[in-house]
Design a protein around this nucleic acid. Structure first.
Lengths: 196, 196
DNA sequence: CTACTATTAGTACCAGGTACTAATATATAA
DNA sequence: TTATATATTAGTACCTGGTACTAATAGTAG
């Protein structure tokens, strides 16, 4: 059966094509694969691949959700506990986009982002910005692991706060950082002190 | 004309609704706003708002692109120059998703991510991971500004490298960091030294 | 030659629209 | 009060990108 081979390879191509570009109509697929539109539809259906509009929606929803969780909110991770000006806890699950493809190890800046945003969120002020930080990655964090960051405000004189954050996976410390965070009332105060 | 007022407020509502949820049909909008579907369509057209399917596509494409640029590549920002093991330069333009909505100031972890990923990319090894870092945010970076990060490998003994990164906006330094980066051959070597 | 698989064709239908025409309020000015 | 302009609603023809189904045709294996 030559047919079966043709069919299989075509379906593999189809899957590959839709994989790298989900925004393509059955008609276009039919043209490229040089089969009829019905064949494409049959293939899609036997393979359980939804229609264009559904695919676009999936991408839109998924991507929008990820965008929100990555860069939308002021906080990276999910806030579990917060006492303004005192301490806070957040949870971050390491997803595929956060890791190096080669190793499955989370890129450092995601852990940093979780810790930093938690430190900033802790400060009870109109506006708070990180001035300096000393950080330490103690162990690589892997895809799928859940990182719990615990932040504590150590000292706060006026507009200047020191927040320490320790992040752990199942009680094993993976990250530690000390953040100097500056609070700003509302307007005007110069940023000269910012870097000090 | 009471009508005009009604129309205006309705259109404002419409815009707001579509703003926080673009995935809604004209029919649903008509139900909520208690007008006919034609009125919703007229409103959309006079306001230049595209139909549902086009909106979904926009979100899908835009979000997919942003996802790629935010978390897809190993490097945050655009690589301008790279001499493996020696130095590198990258450019990051501050977009809306990177800033605090209230102030328009870039959240620190984006600058960190640019610097960190550049430092790691600089290391000529199979795998490289950040161990520790001291960083300093010297001036807030605002929406739309272009941040150029320059990284230099200062010393490298075996698997351990010190990379300094300074980021600037138009020759004004906004960020400085010193990264201790660990290189790993391929497999096996223990992570014990990782945090040292 | 027959049975079976793969492919193609065609039709009716659907959602969520566009584009257009026309009828019906509603209010405002003359 | 009436003419006029604006706002709203109704209705129709048509479009894209499909689903779901039926039927015809081509090619292959036994």
């Amino acid at each position: 059966m030559v047919r079966t081979v043709k069919k299989q390879t075509r379906q593999e191509k189809l899957r590959a094509m839709l994989n790298d570009n989900p925004f393509i109509t059955d008609g276009a697929l039919a043209d490229i694969l040089e089969v009829s539109i019905q064949t494409v539809r049959l293939d899609r259906q036997t393979m359980g691949i939804p229609e264009l509009r559904a695919r676009v929606q999936e991408v839109a929803e998924g991507a929008a959700a990820k965008l929100k969780s990555l860069s939308g909110p002021e906080l990276v991770g999910e806030l579990l506990d917060l006492e303004l000006g005192i301490r806070g806890i957040s949870l971050l699950e390491v997803t595929g986009e956060m890791v190096f493809a080669k190793t499955g190890v989370a890129r450092g800046h995601h852990l940093f982002a979780q810790a930093n945003s938690l430190a900033v969120a802790l400060i009870d002020a109109e506006v708070a910005l990180t001035g300096t930080a000393q950080i330490r990655f103690k162990r690589p964090v892997l895809l799928g692991e859940k990182v719990i960051a615990r932040a504590v405000v150590n000292s706060g004189k006026g507009q200047r706060f020191v927040v320490t954050v320790t992040s752990s996976v199942k009680d094993e410390e993976v990250f530690a950082g000390e953040f100097m965070v500056f609070a700003k009332g509302s307007e005007g105060e110069q940023w000269d002190a910012y870097s000090s």
